[in-house]
């Protein structure tokens, strides 16, 4: 039970991100909240594969490898992909935010909700 709070941290990050996405009004702050949500999911996935006594799953010159158990490699491989996907999504959404600001000169979603179908 010693490092259960790693799970707690990831849940808090996920919930903070989700709540901020639903309640915040600024376009860029919603993107920051999305990144926090992704960081929470990544932390949750990595703590799944953690072994307290283990080493990184890399065979190096270290001799005393016999009795040592290694940390699981698959979560790390997947989180590598998820981090780059998170960066790609952030870059795209920031471009959308910048273009929306250039068109409508506001970054607040309340002002954007007004007229939808204009010509």
């Amino acid at each position: 039970m010693s490092n259960f709070f790693l799970y707690l941290t990831s849940i808090l990050l996920i919930m903070a991100g989700l709540a901020a996405i639903l309640y915040k009004r600024n376009l860029i702050k919603i993107v920051i909240a999305l990144n926090i949500l992704e960081a929470g999911v990544n932390l949750l996935f990595i703590t799944l594969g953690y072994r307290p006594g283990g080493t990184a799953p890399i065979f190096t010159m270290a001799p005393e490898l016999e009795g040592l158990s290694m940390v699981l490699p698959t979560p790390q491989a997947l989180i590598l992909t998820n981090i780059v996907i998170g960066f790609a999504t952030t870059a795209l959404m920031l471009t959308f935010a910048v273009l929306t600001h250039r068109h409508n000169d506001t970054m607040d979603i309340r002002n954007l909700r007004g007229v939808e179908s204009n010509d």
């Binding site: 072994r51 989180i79 960066f87 952030t90």
Partner: peptide, 21 residues
Amino acid sequence: LDAPDVAIAEAGIGAALTTCI
């Protein structure tokens, strides 16, 4: 958490590039 690959990726992409954009 013994995940050096992910640490470098998070540092390189998360801290450096995401903050930049």
